[in-house]
């Protein structure tokens, strides 16, 4: 249990996927303009992460023992299929949510946080339960970072930013400060 808590907190804040591993930066900068969209995209990504974690575990346990060189290829195929699957389910179950997520849903496929999750899970040798907890932590951490960034940017819209710094440079500096704040979580699991 203690180990699971460490995995969860580690992925959620201490080694936040976005702010410490730099994974999922495209949506982090691309979709963090509005808080609500950011939050929804975070949830959808978390969901895909959990599916990927389960699938990666199954692949690692049953298939890739014999064919380790197919790991990367099979992970990508699994992620693409998982996203497609989620897209179909959301479309059926809640057309309203589907419309709200729009283009961001298929874009989850190219989110490196998801492939990163599957690869880290493999290199650390996580089991099924550990993998799911890891995915929940990582997805939660991604959502948290995205939501924080979106709130900061909504706030910054109202302030007087020099024209020179507007755009990507400004967002990067914001992210740097956010990442510094997250460094305060280091040491959480070990004291």
């Amino acid at each position: 249990m203690k180990e699971l808590v460490w995995i969860f907190l580690g992925a959620l804040v201490v080694n936040n996927f976005t702010l410490s591993y730099f994974l999922g930066l495209c949506p982090f900068f691309g979709v963090s303009g509005k808080l609500q969209t950011a939050f929804r995209l975070g949830l959808a990504t978390t969901f895909v992460m959990v599916i990927t974690a389960i699938a990666a575990w199954a692949l690692n346990t049953f298939v890739l023992v014999q064919f380790p060189y197919l790991r990367l290829l099979s992970f990508i195929v699994v992620i693409a299929s998982a996203v497609q699957f989620v897209e179909m389910v959301v479309k059926k179950a809640s057309p309203a949510l589907f419309a709200a997520l729009g283009i961001f849903l298929p874009l989850i496929t190219t989110n490196c946080a998801i492939l990163g999750l599957a690869l880290f899970q493999t290199s650390r040798g996580y089991g099924l339960l550990q993998g799911i907890v890891f995915a929940l932590g990582a997805g939660g951490g991604f959502t948290l970072a995205l939501a924080l960034m979106a709130s900061l940017r909504e706030e910054a819209k109202l302030s007087d930013v020099p024209a020179l710094a507007r755009g990507t440079a400004f967002n990067l500096l914001l992210a740097g400060i956010l990442a510094m704040a997250f460094m305060g979580f280091a040491g959480l699991g070990s004291s």
């Binding site: 580690g10 650390r124 699991g189 070990s190």
Partner: peptide, 8 residues
């Protein structure tokens, strides 16, 4: 192995 300051 075990948790350190940043990572395992």
């Amino acid at each position: 192995q075990g948790p350190g300051f940043q990572d395992t």
